[in-house]
Amino acid sequence: MNIYLNEEEKLKHPYYKLMELQGADLENELNSWSRLDLIEWLCWNDRNGVYRDEDSLQEFGNTVSKELAIEIITKQIIQG
């Protein structure tokens, strides 16, 4: 099974498409996603991060809010 995506396949995948956005386009797209979708993206992009509710509660005593998820994603994309 091929786990690597070619450039055309990447452009069709919503997680990769998100990484191509900037500025207001990125902000608008992120705001249209649910909190759980944002957390799924964070887990996909940063496998070592603590984003899922059960992990975050155990590690930090709280969960990742939608606003914080958007902030983290924006930083990861800009710095990526």
Rank of each mutant, 00 (worst) to 15 (best):
K10H: 08
E67M: 07
N28R: 09
A69P: 00
W44V: 07
N31L: 10
R52I: 07
S65G: 11
F60C: 11
S32C: 02
D53E: 15
V64F: 00
L30Q: 09
S65H: 11
L18W: 11
L26P: 02
D46T: 10
F60M: 05
R47S: 09
L11G: 09
V64T: 08
G61I: 11
I77K: 02
D53V: 10
N28C: 03
A24V: 12
A69L: 05
D46R: 13
I77A: 08
G80Y: 05
K66D: 01
R35G: 14
C43Y: 03
E20D: 10
T63M: 04
T74V: 06
I78H: 06
K12R: 12
Q58D: 15
D25A: 15
L68S: 02
M19Q: 07
F60L: 12
D37V: 06
Q58K: 09
R35D: 15
R35V: 09
Y4R: 13
E67I: 07
A69G: 03
E29D: 13
L36I: 01
S32T: 00
Y51M: 09
V50D: 05
I39V: 15
I70S: 00
E59V: 04
E67L: 00
N6H: 10
D46S: 03
R47I: 14
E59D: 07
I70R: 10
L36Y: 00
Y51E: 03
L57D: 14
K10A: 09
Q79A: 09
E59Q: 14
L68F: 01
E9D: 15
L42C: 01
D25K: 15
L57G: 11
V64K: 06
E9K: 05
I77E: 05
E8Q: 15
R47K: 10
L38F: 03
Y16C: 11
L30T: 07
I3H: 03
I70C: 03
L5K: 12
L38A: 08
T63W: 00
A69D: 01
N31V: 04
E40K: 13
E27I: 11
Q58G: 01
K75C: 02
E71G: 04
N31I: 08
M19H: 04
P14L: 11
D46M: 03
I3L: 07
Q58E: 13
K10E: 13
S65P: 11
G61C: 02
N48E: 04
N62L: 05
T74K: 01
S65Y: 10
D25V: 09
